[in-house]
Design a protein around this nucleic acid. Sequence first.
DNA 1: ACTTGACCTCAAGTTGGCTTGAATTCGTAG
DNA 2: CTACGAATTCAAGCCAACTTGAGGTCAAGT
Lengths: 146, 146
Amino acid sequence: MKFLDIGEVSARTGVKPSALRYYEEIGLIESLFRHGLRRQFSSDVLLQIKLITMGQAAGFSLEEIAGMFGRDGRADLPRDVLHRKADEIDDKIQQLSALRDTLRHVADCKAPSHMECPTFRRLVEFSGKRGRVRLKRKRPAFASDI
Amino acid sequence: MKFLDIGEVSARTGVKPSALRYYEEIGLIESLFRHGLRRQFSSDVLLQIKLITMGQAAGFSLEEIAGMFGRDGRADLPRDVLHRKADEIDDKIQQLSALRDTLRHVADCKAPSHMECPTFRRLVEFSGKRGRVRLKRKRPAFASDI
DNA sequence: ACTTGACCTCAAGTTGGCTTGAATTCGTAG
DNA sequence: CTACGAATTCAAGCCAACTTGAGGTCAAGT
């Protein structure tokens, strides 16, 4: 098995050595042993770091990430908690989709003020709703519904 | 037209008054006038704040958000920049999807160590691949398309 | 008129997630 | 063997995005 210096891990993940030391300090990753003073990492750490950066992209704190996958990528949490996390991510995906759609609309819409553009308002207003957007409403939606 | 106290804005958006004052301080939102000392907001601010929180969920800084939609929800940026932002969000959605799938897998997989589970490795490794299927859309996409 | 409580300002503090710098220790190539 | 570069520790610093606290103002209800 080949072991990796912190510099190599850094180069292959794009995460700076200082950040990697910090991750080790807080128990998010671990080095197997030292070669002199130098930390030696298993190549598994590359996958773990990928998970960490994905988690960060999802807006989770390092602490939450540590909870999802222990230091060896093994989950500490019970099934249902993990599924709730997954649901949380699904919610976030909904939000991101709405934001993306809104941005694209803003890019192309000719209306002088977006606040008066019904498409814009609808995009933003529906963004938080769970599940399918309900097309049938008893009355029109207002900003005051937020 | 009805004007809103900071407390009402807070109650209806879930954003604390201190945060709203901070947003105003940095020019992200604005109050129309004061009633005594009290800020009075137009109801449009509710929509703006929704955009702000969506942007935050997407991992954008307040500064970036300010750039996307000026203080009245009008974009300062040229079309192509907005579309690039939208693409950025699409990338993030891919990452989130991968993370979600990984979490669900971890929740259900019986393997003793995830590091040795090929499904797990594939899920994580695949997540970064470029050149995903890119759907061409002729009309703006809606949240309900997901 | 008085009281209440929601609001105000301003400065300072907090948290998370690192980065930076100084002083030092090693391993390897020449 | 020596020099070099890559690594180490530790404390301090930094940034964003708020929050907190002290001390003050004000509008509205009784």
